[in-house]
């Protein structure tokens, strides 16, 4: 599984970072981005889905692969 954050949608709620700090980082302006290239290790897939489902701006996408 691979994920990405749409920077135009992200408004800095930081829910993803709270739920899956291994997968996201947030800058001083609240802008979130994926750690590394967004590849999610199998053991973190559940957390990735939780982050996607909890984003109030629907800014996180799961990419195929």
């Amino acid at each position: 599984m691979k994920i990405r954050v749409d920077p135009d949608r992200c408004q800095g709620h930081a829910r993803c970072y709270a739920l899956a700090p291994e997968l996201f980082s947030v800058d001083d302006y609240g802008q979130s981005s994926v750690v590394g290239d967004g590849t999610v290790p199998a053991e973190l897939e559940e957390k990735a889905h939780l982050a996607i489902a909890n984003c109030p701006e629907s800014a996180i996408e799961a990419l195929a692969g």
């Binding site: 939780l50 109030p56 701006e57």
Partner: peptide, 20 residues
């Protein structure tokens, strides 16, 4: 509650700047 996309802090460009 596992899924909670509440908008207590608003949504869009005015998302509460103090939410953290």
């Amino acid at each position: 509650r596992a899924i909670n996309r509440h908008v207590a802090f608003g949504t869009g460009i005015h998302r509460c700047a103090g939410s953290n």
